[in-house]
């Protein structure tokens, strides 16, 4: 297990650890108490993954540049 709190994990971290938790659970060689702890952690990781998957937000913006080519801000880009 990593030290990163589940709520701060990237999708990839949470995914990798979920796989790991599952592997341990499926091997069935952990104590019952620990398997319940693992299950709970797995559930938290799954929730984290779901949250990251829900963040499927499309937002497209173009950077505006000044006359010297330096960025000044963004403008919503309407590209179909």
């Amino acid at each position: 297990m990593t030290d990163t709190p589940v709520t701060e994990m990237s999708f990839e971290q949470a995914m990798a650890e979920l796989e790991q938790v599952l592997g341990q659970l499926e091997r069935g060689d952990v104590a019952l108490d620990q398997s319940i702890t693992l299950y709970e952690r797995g559930a938290a990781l799954k929730a984290r993954c779901e949250a990251k998957l829900k963040e499927a937000e499309e937002k497209v913006a173009a950077i505006t540049l000044d006359s010297d080519g330096n960025p000044t801000g963004t403008t919503p880009a309407d590209i179909q």
């Binding site: 499309e58 937002k59 173009a62 880009a77």
Partner: peptide, 25 residues
């Protein structure tokens, strides 16, 4: 910012996983 390239990219992103995109023209 104009042309098929950015459109292709945005379409494919939308199909797979909509994300925030910043375009530097």
């Amino acid at each position: 910012p104009s042309g098929a390239v950015i459109r292709d990219i945005l379409h494919r992103l939308r199909d797979r996983f909509p994300r925030k995109v910043l375009i530097w023209p």
